[in-house]
Design a protein around this nucleic acid. Sequence first.
DNA 1: TTTATTTGACCTGT
DNA 2: ACAGGTCAAATAAA
Length: 247
Amino acid sequence: MSPSPSRPPSNQRDAAIQELRRGTELAARLRQQVELIPELDRREAAVANVSEIAEAMESSLFILKSQSEHSFSEAGESMAVQAGYGTYSSDGGSSARNGAVARARKVRHRRGRLGEEAPITKEILTEAPENDRFPWRKYGEKKILNAEYTRLYYKCGNSDNHSKCPAKKYVQQQSNSSNPPLFNVTFINEHTCCSTMFPDEPSSRSDSSQVIDFTNPSLPSPLMEGAPGLTQEEEDNTSVSMHSCGY
DNA sequence: TTTATTTGACCTGT
DNA sequence: ACAGGTCAAATAAA
């Protein structure tokens, strides 16, 4: 309805994407280097940090790419974004289905038949499945055939409030129990809420999710621990206006 | 008291 | 029939 909020020009976005790609590569190199640290504790801590850096890069890349895709095809044409170590497809093989519930006699939209857009999925392998700076709420857990660990189901913490964010993720611990354990995380749908959680900051009362506009270039990276200057009240005042932020 | 998580039931697609 | 995904009542935690 409302006109889409102003976005950075595409050339700026492309430049940012390029920089983020470079950052991702550098993080990969850095990881190789820190893996040479002889002390186990320090090595693991460093590897974890580098992984987080890489994830932050990925998230930012994904956000920017989602935006540029949207600017080309608003109507949810099949998106093909390749992002670092994550694969991205318009129908991630597992084809997330919408369930339905009889108990509540709710009529829910069925899975897209012909012409209905498939959910956007993105799969990554990570040691820290929680650490993607979005507020997730667990809604299910399931034993999966031939999987050693149960699969956990999360939806965006803003799925129930006004923004009706459709984003979900499935977390599956890899059976080869490496140390630290690896998790296969499948993201379903983009975030429409642009919310992130900053563990170091107390969440505000009655609105546990913090609404941050990731598209705002003035924002410091959420990766910086305890990053100051995030005035989310300002975001609230500007009513956030639903950026399609992706991850 | 409110909010988040757990868990068994039930759904859909294959 | 089975596997995977979702719901919502029950429960736990804040």
